[in-house]
Design a protein around this nucleic acid. Structure first.
Lengths: 117, 117
DNA sequence: CGAACCTTGACACATCCCTGCTAAGGTTGC
DNA sequence: GCAACCTTAGCAGGGATGTGTCAAGGTTCG
């Protein structure tokens, strides 16, 4: 069999066999199968698994986050909707009354301080 | 006060006051404040809130999903890393001989890792 | 002043996400 | 043919999300 079995793959990638099945179930990997249904993990898949691990703990995000990112790249509708929402910036732009922006700037300052703390 | 108070905003957007505070706490909205600290919701923010609701139940996603999308648009590093991971799809592109695909994949990974790093 | 708002903080609960484990059964290979 | 692997399916539990509610205190305004 060209490619590792699930336990071997788990061994070399640091994921548990359970998690490899879970990763497949949420659509993050699609390892091919043998005739009899055994998953086989090739070098690319193994590398991909290691990269995923790196990605998660470098940025402290969850699998569902990555899965959602994947959903966005496949669903153009969704991707556009999300973009549009962020595009509709709440960064009070033009319509700001002049007696507003002072307090707004003060608040921004407070928010920044809050972030630092 | 130009702009609605939190209860009024809740009334017209369908969110509960509790949720409006929660949405702010996870960084999805940043309503400005009055001098004394009251949140004030302007027309833009109200529209944004309605759009968010629409977004969530149209695509059946969670707030944390949208929050993560937001994180990606602000963190270029993260966005690149996620892209790179999906780019490294374990699918055999057309025209790659089966003798070649292994080294080809490995090369691609080299390139992608170089980008991400 | 007092009623009706607003603020933050915290407790509580349902529901997911992630993960391990076990069970019942098919496959592989010595 | 049997040990060691694989498969799916399910329960279980700790942690994060999403949401309500209550408490203690400041603000607004008639």
């Amino acid at each position: 069999m060209d490619g590792l079995t699930i336990n071997e793959a788990a061994e070399t990638t640091g994921w548990s066999p359970r998690m490899l099945r879970y990763l497949e179930s949420v659509g993050l990997i699609q390892p091919p199968r043998t005739e009899s249904g055994y998953r086989k993990f090739g070098p690319e898949e193994l590398q991909r698994l290691r990269t995923l691990r790196e990605l998660l703990n470098r940025f402290g995000c969850g699998l569902s986050d990555v899965a959602f990112a994947g959903r966005m790249r496949e669903d153009d509708e969704l991707s556009k909707a999300v973009d549009a929402w962020f595009e509709a910036a709440p960064r009070l732009p033009e319509g700001v009354a002049s007696d507003d922006w002072l307090s707004w700037e003060q608040e921004k300052h407070q928010r920044l301080l809050g972030m630092a703390a």
